[in-house]
Design a protein around this nucleic acid. Sequence first.
RNA 1: GCGCCCGUAGCUCAGUUGGAUAGAGCGCGAGCCUUCUAAGCUUGAGGUCGUAGGUUCGAAUCCUACCGGGCGCGCCA
Length: 577
Amino acid sequence: MSLYARYAALLDGVLDELVASGGLPAELDRRNVTVEPPRDPSHGDLATNAAMVLAKPAKTNPRALAEQLRPRLAAMAGVTAAEVAGPGFINLRLQADAWRDELRTILGESDRYGMSTIGNGERVNVEFVSANPTGPLHMGHCRGAVVGDALARLLAAAGFAVTKEYYVNDAGAQVDTLARSVHLRYREALGQDVAGLPEGLYPGDYLVSVGARLAAEFGDRYAQAPESEWLPLFRERAIAAMLELIRSDLALLGIHHDKFASEAELQRSGAVDRAMQVLRGKGLVYQGVLERPKSLDEQDEWEPVELTLFRSTAFGDDQDRPMKKSDGSWTYFGSDAAYHWQKAQDSDDLVNIWGADHSGTVKRVQSAVTALTDGRVDLDVKLVNMVRLFRAGEPVKMSKRAGDFITLAEVVDEVGKDVVRFMMLTKRADTPLDFDFAKVVEASKDNPVFYVQYAHARISSLKRKAADAGVDVGASADLGLLDGEELALVRRASQFPRVLESAAATHEPHRIAFFLFDLAAEFHALWNRGNDDPARRFLVENNPQLSRARLELAFGIGQIVRSGLELMGVAATEEMR
RNA sequence: GCGCCCGUAGCUCAGUUGGAUAGAGCGCGAGCCUUCUAAGCUUGAGGUCGUAGGUUCGAAUCCUACCGGGCGCGCCA
C-alpha cells in the first residue's frame, strides 16, 4: 500500500475518533477529503484539506476544525509535526524514514507497486480503432489505437475487468464497394484488361493479392457473372482479408483486441430489431419527419420523408435520429444503438475511442445506451484529434485520392513501435498532435521518448557497472545513508499510484507520459550532480556502502519508470544505441 | 442558426477531477563544461489563465453571457 493511501486510512481513523467523541457530527460526506503531497515542498510531506471540506457541514469554521484535528494528526505514527496553514490546510511532516520505507515498499512490491483496486472488478468495455475493413490502417487510426490500448492497460492496472473490442462495420455500402474493387482485381488476375479504375472503387494495391487468391481458387467462374452471384462471396472474402491485414497492423503496435464484433452478424441475429422494440416499448420510437437540415443552402434540394425515429431529444440530443432508412434497412445509428446495448449486456461501463470528427454523434449513442439500460450503464466517448505529420519541420503532404496516405505500418517501420506509442500519448487525446519523423527519433532532451528511455538506460547501466566498482548488488543496503535530496526523488516516484488512479478515473492515459517525463527530469538532475562532484555519483569509488544505498534508490526509480512505460505499452530500454 | 471541443509564458503544451505564491519543454539572457556518468549542465527573465459577471472559506478548474479558433449538423459511415 502506498504511503498516501496509508495516511488517508489513518486520517479516516482520526475522523472516526472525533465523531465518537462528539467533536464531529456523524454521517459527514468524506469523499472530498484528500491526503496529498503539497505542491510546495516547504509545506511538508503531506497535506490534508479535511478541515476545509468538513467545516461547513460540521457547522464550524475551517481553522477551528483544523486546530481540533491538528494534535490528533501530530500523534499519528511517523508524523513529526502537524501545522495548520493557509485557509485551513493541515500540513504534516514525516520522519525521513517514511520515505526510506516507501523506497523499500517500491522495491519489495516491484511491478505490483501502484497497482490499484479502485475499479473493484467492475467490467469495462473499451472499444477502439473500429476502422472500416476496407484497407490497411493509416495514421488517422494510429492515435486512437494507442490511446485505446493504453487506456485498457490503465484500467486493468486500476482493478477493472477490461474487454478490448473492435466493431467491424461490415454491413454498409462501403464493404460492397470493397467487394467490387476486389472483383476488379480478380478479373485483372485472370488477365482481363480492366482498363483503369472506375470512379469510386478502392485503388489500393493491397487488394491485388486478394483478387489473385480468388482467381486461383475459382478460376474464371465469376468473371462474367452478374454481381448478385459473386458479391456476397467476394465481400466475405475481402472483409476477412482486410481484417487479417488490420490485425497484423495492430500487432505491429503490440495491440490485440479481445473481441471483434460484426455489424452484419448483429443485424442477422435480430438484435437490432430487438433493440428497437425495447425502445418502442418505452415510447421512444415513432414515425416522423425530420426538419430540413440547417447546414443546407437555400438552393440545395431536400425532400421531407417519413422515417422511423428514436426520440434522442428526450436525453438532450438536438434532434431525433433515424434508426431505419426509408427503404427499410438500418441506419448506421440503428445498428450502433443495438451494438452498444449488446456491449452493455456484460459491462458495467462502456468507453469508446472515436475520431474527433464523430463528435456530433456522441449524444445520440449515449442517449440510446441510457434508454436501453435504464441508466445502468454509462458511456464515455473519448474523442481523439488528428495527427499532423512532419518531416524535419515540413508538413507531409497527403492527398486522399489514389490511396496516397501514410500507413501505420510505414510509420512503425520507420521509427519503431515504442516511439510511436509514446508520442501518441504526449498530449491530451482531444487536441491535435504534431508528429515529426525527425524529431521523434532525436537523441536529445527535447525528445520525451528519448529522455525517459535514457533515464531507464542509465539506471540499467548502474547494474552492469556495479561489479566494476566493487559493489555487490545482492548485499543489503543501509538506506539511512540517503540524504534529503535523494529522498525527494522517492517522494516524486511515490506519486505514481496516485497518478495511475487519476489517469484511470479520468480515462486520460497521457498523464502517465507527463509523470514519467517529470520523474526522468528529476532523476537526470540528480545524476548530473555527479558530473561536477564524483562524491555525488550513484557509484562512489571506494564507498560500497553508500553506492549500495544509492543503487537501491536508482533501482526503485527504474522500477517506477518501467511500470509507467508498461502502462503505455512501451518497452523500457536497457541501453541506448 | 444549433451542438460538442478548445482558448494558460513569444511558441508547443501540462495543471493531481475546487486548494496555498499557476508549471514544464523550446526559444531568449547569463555563467559553466569539452567530458566516456555519452547524445551537455546550472541559472535568470517572461502570466489581467480569452473577456465580464456569478457560486464560496478558496476558481485556470464549476455556472451564465459574450469574444475568438476547430470539428460536426439529411436516410453517409
